[in-house]
Design a binder for these strands. Sequence first.
RNA 1: UGGGGUGUCGCCAAGUUGGUAAGGCACAAGGUUUUGAUCCUUGCAUGCGGGGGUUCGAGUCCCUCCACCCCAGCCA
Length: 556
Amino acid sequence: MSDDSERYPSNFISNIIEGDLKVGKNGGRVSTRFPPEPNGFLHIGHAKAICLNFGLARDYVGTTNLRFDDTNPLKENADFMRTMREDIQWLGFQWSEERKASDYFEQLFEFAVDLIRQDKAYVDSLSAEDIRLYRGTLTQAGKNSPFRDRSIEENLKMFEDMRAGAFADGAHVLRLKIDMSSPNINMRDPAIYRIRHVEHHQTGNKWCIYPLYDYTHCISDALEGITHSLCDIGFEDHRPLYNWVLDQLQLPIHPQQIEFSRLNLKYTVMSKRKMKILVEQDLVEGWDDPRLPTLAGLRRRGYAPAAIRDFCRRIGVAKSENNVELALLESCLRENLEVNAPRAMAVLDPLKVIITNFSEDQVETLKVANHPKNEAMGERSVPFTRELYIDREDFRLEANRKYKRLVLGGEVRLRGGYVIRADDVKVDSMGKISELHCSYDPETLGVNPPDRKVRGVIHWVSSINAAGVIFRRFQPLFSVEYPDASDAEYTDLINPDSMLEFSGFLENWLLETQPGNQYQFERVGYFTRDSEQQADNVPVFNEVVGLRDSWAKING
RNA sequence: UGGGGUGUCGCCAAGUUGGUAAGGCACAAGGUUUUGAUCCUUGCAUGCGGGGGUUCGAGUCCCUCCACCCCAGCCA
C-alpha cells in the first residue's frame, strides 16, 4: 500500500522532519509512535493520528511503534488493546514493535528515585483537595506544599514505602519539584505517581503506585528512541514539562514533541466519552454502529480503508481549529468505490412490473457488464422475465420532460436489457399503485430504436432472481453541524432519520457476498453486506455512501 | 487580570531566504454517457482577521488592535 500516491503533501511536520534530516539530527533516523490509551474504541480522529505517524515514518523510511499508554488501570483493559490492534491493521498499517507504558514501570520507578536523589522530586502528603488549593489559579501563583522540603532520605524511604503498599490510596503522591509560581500551571510541581491499590491488566498486582502521563510519556518516547513525538494540540503547554523531565535524566535521546490539531467532523461528535454515552444509552446499536465514526463502525458501514487513508491525507495537518465537511470523506469513498466496486442492481422500494408481451414461462438470460469501464471485472447473467421489479420513484403517472424515467405511455430502457413502455397501472383499494403493465420492444437489446426517443435508463430485478433483503441508508447521526457547540444536549440532537430501512430486492447472487466487499447498486449507491446476523435472519445491506445525485438537486 | 495557540475562497489547506495567492472538497455552467453515476472542459480570493509602518515590492518583516481555541485531574 505504500505507493507514492499515499505520500503526505508538504505540511509543517514534514518540514520539520526534512529540516532535521538536512542537518543530520538523530543520525538521519525517523521514528514515531502511535500511543493510544486502551480505554475505548479508535475513531476517525485517531485515524488521522495513525495515518500521520505511520505515514510520515513510511515517507521518510523510518519506523513506528504501537504503544499502549496503560498507566491508568482504573479505566483500561486488554480487550480494548485487542480491538485497537485489529482496527490499526484493518486501516492498513503494521507497527515495528508493540510496547506498553507498563513495560517501563520498573525503569520509570528507578528514574523517579534518581529525581528524588537529585532533590527534584518529593513525596507530598497533602490531600488532593489541598493540592488543588495550593496550586493557585490561572492568574495567581501557587504556593509551596509544606511537605516540599522533606529530606532526600525521607522522600526515598516514603517512595519505597509507597511502592511497598504501606499507604492507602491517595495518602501521598510523588511530585516533581519545579516552580509553584510558574505561569504555566503544568510546571507547578506536577504529580507523577499516585497510589492505587488496583490490579493492572498487564502487571497484575505487582504495583500499587502508577505513574502519570506527563512523566511516563516523555520517558517512554526516549526509551524507544522516538525522534518525533506527535500529539494533540492540547498538550502544547505540556511540552515544557516533557522537556524538563528529559533534561533531568540520562536518556539515549531527547525526542521532539510536535503538536497538531485534532480532526473535527461536522454533524458528528469525536469524543470517546460522548460516544460511550450514545452506546450506553442505546442511542446507537453499539461501538460498531455504522453511523458512528469509530473505525469499527466505519468498517461495518463498508468504508474502504484506502479511502479513509486518502481522507486523512487530504485533510492535511496543521495547528488550526478545523471542521471538515462530510462531503470530503464521501468524496474519498466514491472515488475509491467508483473503480473498485462491481456493479449490481437492487430495488429498494419495489413496484411490480408485468411485461405483458413476454410469455410467463420464458426466461431470457442477459449478459450485463460488472463495470462500465473495466472489462476485467467481467459480466454476469441477469434473467429477464415477464414479472420484475423497478423502484417506485422511477415511475410517475405523468411528468414533464425533465423527468427521465418511466411515465404512462412513455419509454425507458431497463439497464442492460430492453426498452419498455408503460401501458397501464393497477391501483389498490388505498389508491396506491400496485402494479405496472408494460410492453417491451424485442428489437432494442443493445440498440436504440431508430425512430423514437427513450427517456432514460432505470434499474430493475427479475422476480425469479430477486432476493428479499433489508437495505439501510444513512444520514448524519446528528441533525446539526456542530452538536458539540449547541446549547442543547447533544443526545437531544440525534437525527431521527439517521438510519432508514427499506425492504426490497436485489440480484440473489449478492446474498453470497461478504461483509467488507462493496458493490455499487446502480443509480442508488454503494452497499455492503452487514456483518451482524439479524434475529429473523433477513439479510441486511448497509449503504456505504450514495451516488452523487444531481437529480435530487433539480427535483428538490 | 496569567500562560500557550490559531486566524489565507463556503470547508480543509499549500505558500523555502519578502517578488507579485498551489491543490482538494463544495458550488456553477457546458460536453460525453444503456448508471440524472463516472469522465472531460470551463468558472470560482486585485486579496491573505483589522489598521498602521518598513520596502521598488509583504500573506510572508515591524508595530498595534480584534476574534476564536486550550490550560487550574492524584485522566490521557
